[in-house]
């Protein structure tokens, strides 16, 4: 029973981080119809900024609880980066064929990958003191790190917050209108350029948040962006490109399958995930919650 609970919590842990990455990717696709191949790098960027900032302050006079808030530097810098990228690099491409959009984000992926190396060097950054600082809980016979529970809570809050933002605010209405019919929204007086930059920034903020919250547990390492992107792809393909509900369900499914896979079939765990994505695409090309 305890082990089952631990497995369930681990699945939720994966799902929480994956949702933050894939949710942003899906939001950006839903509004702007762009598959951002550099999205994983914004996740990595958030992680490195968070790790670096906290690393400066750790051991200093800053009280430890405040350090957890300092992690938020990651998402904010990622968001700022997103706000700079969209108008300069992406905007010229909305009217061009999809091939060019994929290529420009692929180029961006190459650039950001090395930008991280240029700024922070090739070695991993860790702030494991934040991870250990929270201690652990006893669940029956087993011990579970409290920080992992905190990540699950943050993921849940992010999902709830995003839902409220998109379905309960004025901005959300504008965002959904633009997503459904960009021309019509424009005709109704929506400043589409502004919505695009806001959506992209929000997506990057989520990716950065995902990066920041994994830092105490896993640290920030080169290549984490590319790995994350591929898993996020699986999630959005299963859930449906552009659908946030889909990203949530997809993240949960991938979280569960990964946890099962690591326990029972570690060799084919990744292959099973990709096959799952391919299988969903075959039956429902637009994903479980997508609209074609």
């Amino acid at each position: 029973m305890d082990t089952l609970l631990i497995h369930a919590l681990n699945s939720l842990l994966y799902a929480a981080v994956l949702f933050l990455i894939a949710g942003g990717l899906s939001l950006i696709y839903g509004v702007m119809r762009i598959v951002n191949l550099a999205h994983g790098n914004l996740f990595a960027f958030g992680a490195f900024v968070a790790a670096w900032t906290v690393g400066r302050l750790v051991g200093g006079p800053t009280p430890t609880p405040l350090l957890y808030l300092v992690l938020l530097a990651g998402p904010f810098v990622a968001a700022a980066l997103g706000a700079a990228i969209e108008p300069t690099l992406l905007r010229p491409f909305y009217k061009r064929p999809e091939e060019y959009q994929l290529l420009i984000t692929f180029g961006l992926q190459l650039i950001l990958e090395d930008l991280v190396r240029l700024i922070w060097g090739p070695y991993p950054l860790t702030v494991s003191s934040l991870y250990e600082g929270m201690g652990s809980l006893n669940i029956g016979e087993s011990i579970y790190p409290t920080y992992n529970l905190a990540v699950i809570v943050v993921g849940g809050l992010a999902a709830a917050g995003l839902w409220a933002f998109i379905y309960r605010t004025q901005f959300g209405i504008v965002l959904r209108a633009t997503s459904q019919n960009m021309r019509m929204a424009q005709a109704m007086g929506v400043n589409v350029n502004r919505v695009y930059v806001q959506a992209f920034t929000l997506g990057c903020f989520m990716a950065g948040l995902g990066g920041a919250i994994v830092v105490p547990q896993q640290g920030a390492v080169l290549g984490m962006g590319v790995d994350a992107l591929i898993l996020a792809f699986v999630v959005v393909v299963i859930g449906g490109l552009g659908s946030l509900e889909g990203a949530l369900i997809g993240a949960l499914m991938v979280g569960v399958v990964r946890e099962l896979g690591i326990t029972f079939f570690p060799e084919v765990e990744l292959a099973v995930l990709y096959l799952m994505a391919a299988g969903v695409l075959l039956v429902r090309p637009a994903g479980l919650f997508g609209r074609a």
Binding site: G107, L110, I111, E113, D114
Partner: peptide
Amino acid sequence: MFLGVVLV
């Protein structure tokens, strides 16, 4: 990064 800049 060099290749990325060339591509962009």
